[in-house]
Amino acid sequence: WVPDSEAPNCMNCQVKFTFTKRRHHCRACGKVFCGVCCNRKCKLQYLEKEARVCVVCYETIS
């Protein structure tokens, strides 16, 4: 899990986070992404309901 303080930009597209461009943690890899790069949901083994995942993890999992 990457702390918010260590991620000033999206770890995929590099967009800078602001008050309106929020950070989202991928529940699969723990990296920090913008809403566009972390907009998929899928079922993870260790969680009961679907969770937010990044586009890279989504392609790997599904």
Rank of each mutant, 00 (worst) to 15 (best):
W1V: 07
W1N: 02
W1F: 12
V2R: 01
V2K: 01
V2I: 09
P3W: 06
D4I: 03
S5K: 05
E6Y: 06
E6S: 09
A7N: 05
A7S: 08
N9E: 14
N9G: 13
C10G: 00
C10R: 00
C10S: 00
C10W: 00
M11N: 08
M11G: 12
M11F: 10
M11R: 10
N12T: 12
N12M: 14
C13V: 00
Q14I: 08
Q14H: 13
V15N: 07
V15I: 08
K16F: 10
F17M: 06
F17A: 01
F17N: 01
T18Y: 03
T18V: 06
T18I: 03
F19C: 14
T20W: 09
T20L: 11
K21L: 04
K21P: 01
R22Q: 07
H24L: 04
H25R: 03
C26F: 00
R27S: 03
C29Q: 00
G30V: 02
K31E: 13
K31T: 02
K31R: 13
V32M: 09
V32Q: 04
V32F: 04
F33L: 12
F33M: 11
F33W: 00
F33H: 05
C34L: 00
C34R: 01
C34M: 02
G35Y: 11
G35L: 11
V36N: 08
V36W: 07
V36C: 12
C37M: 01
N39S: 11
R40E: 15
K41S: 12
K41F: 15
C42L: 11
L44S: 05
L44C: 05
L44R: 04
Q45W: 07
Y46D: 15
Y46S: 15
L47F: 05
K49G: 12
K49S: 10
K49W: 07
E50T: 12
E50Y: 04
E50D: 15
A51V: 08
A51F: 01
R52K: 10
R52Y: 04
R52T: 10
R52L: 13
R52E: 05
C54I: 01
C54L: 00
C54N: 02
C54D: 02
V55Y: 09
V56D: 09
V56K: 09
C57R: 01
C57E: 03
Y58N: 05
Y58F: 06
E59A: 06
E59S: 09
T60I: 06
T60A: 11
I61V: 15
I61H: 15
I61A: 14
S62Q: 04
